[in-house]
Design a protein around this nucleic acid. Structure first.
Lengths: 214, 214
DNA sequence: AAATTATCAGAACAGGTGTACTATGTCAAT
DNA sequence: ATTGACATAGTACACCTGTTCTGATAATTT
């Protein structure tokens, strides 16, 4: 039905959302032009036409800032919500995606809009979509959204998203550094902790929340 | 503190509110002019300056439609979060609280503000705070917030919050009506389903989401 | 390779839009 | 009647802004 959007169209759409979140009025064509570093207003107009044709937004002809977001996009624009990029999946057999913070505004990703209390007001929060049932021992199921704070070094007790190099396995566990070893404790206390060499663990982020819809 | 507004200023303020309710972008000076049947743009500008000075709105100079409503006006117009009452706890040994829908607005409860996608846009959604580890087989842990839609009769397959009368136990399970019996299937497929008499089950709501912060 | 489509670049135009300026009117206090 | 603050009118300007046009480039299909 809906054809996939080009990268530039994604960028524009996310810029509009971001703009309206900050400003309470929509951007002009030229706001979008400079904001997305596009060389011509006609390119913006061209892509806005496509976004309109594909049903992502509505435009009022000849009306300045006459852009109205449609669908889920609309509800998300408004304030009090923090837009978080869903940068990839987390699954047992797949490596955790590594994402540069700089890219986050470049909007190559789907975004979810969440209230601030879920992200603790942190800026550097991203989300991973859970695939499969491999995280049930962390009380996280298939399709759940895991909110991760990008951090340098986890504190003992933090729940982290970790990649175990030798097992080639992603996991969500409580993190405890014990010398040159790391003890990983499942949230579900019925399960056993595991202990591995610190060099074998690659931590991608600290879990700050989990969101499930059904 | 705030001086009373003149009739014309009231008219303008209401027109702006009305306009933004219909259009998702603020009006221009000339929109206000014609909408309020004012003969000159300078009159609009003059009164907008006063409305700004008195704190009713904010203007961005040189920006078309650069009007931002302040105060209660703002939050009421742009409501993007849905306020959900946390009506009580859900724990293994405690009965599920029974709450009248009418009371929800009466703010006897703590509220959480969530984005609409978490509540599927339903009106009759409330939340329960999970106490204890008894719901781990539904992938729900201590402190999680369970979002429930108040419903008449669950559909087969819905995850529901149910009270088992004989066991005096609250539980979260997938619901299947099979004749005069009800099969309750845990989300965690490693656990076994249970089957009980339909008369023994009291369903309080359908689970539409789970939210966890840590 | 050729043709077709999708996308981008640059410039220009016409009308939209915030603002400034001057003049006039209202109305209460002096 | 005079004053002075408040309010309104009309007009004009300079910039903003959506749109259009022509042409070029990249991606895809034939």
């Amino acid at each position: 039905m809906k054809r996939p959007l080009s990268k530039r169209q994604q960028t524009i759409l996310n810029y509009i959302k971001d703009f309206m979140g900050n400003n309470s009025y929509p951007p002009t064509v030229r706001d979008i032009q400079t904001g997305c570093e596009i060389s011509s207003t006609s390119v913006v107009d061209y892509n806005l036409q496509i976004l309109q044709r594909e049903g992502y937004l509505q435009r009022r002809r000849e009306v300045s800032r006459g852009i109205e977001l449609l669908g889920e996009t609309a509800t998300s624009t408004l304030r009090n919500l923090i837009s978080i990029p869903v940068v990839g999946n987390i699954a047992a057999g797949e490596p955790l995606p590594l994402v540069n913070t700089e890219q986050w505004n470049d909007t190559d990703f789907d975004n979810v809009d969440l209230p601030p209390f879920l992200t603790k007001g942190k800026e550097n929060v991203f989300a991973l979509r859970v695939k499969g049932e491999s995280m049930v021992d962390a009380l996280v199921g298939d399709g759940d959204l895991v909110l991760l704070e990008s951090i340098e070094q986890p504190q003992n007790g933090d729940m982290v998203a970790a990649w175990l190099k030798d097992r080639e396995e992603a996991t969500l566990k409580h993190f405890f550094l014990e010398g040159d070893k790391v003890k990983l404790v499942p949230a579900n206390s019925y399960m056993q902790p595991i202990t591995v060499a610190a060099a074998n663990v690659s931590v991608r982020g600290r879990v700050v929340g989990v969101v499930r819809t059904m």
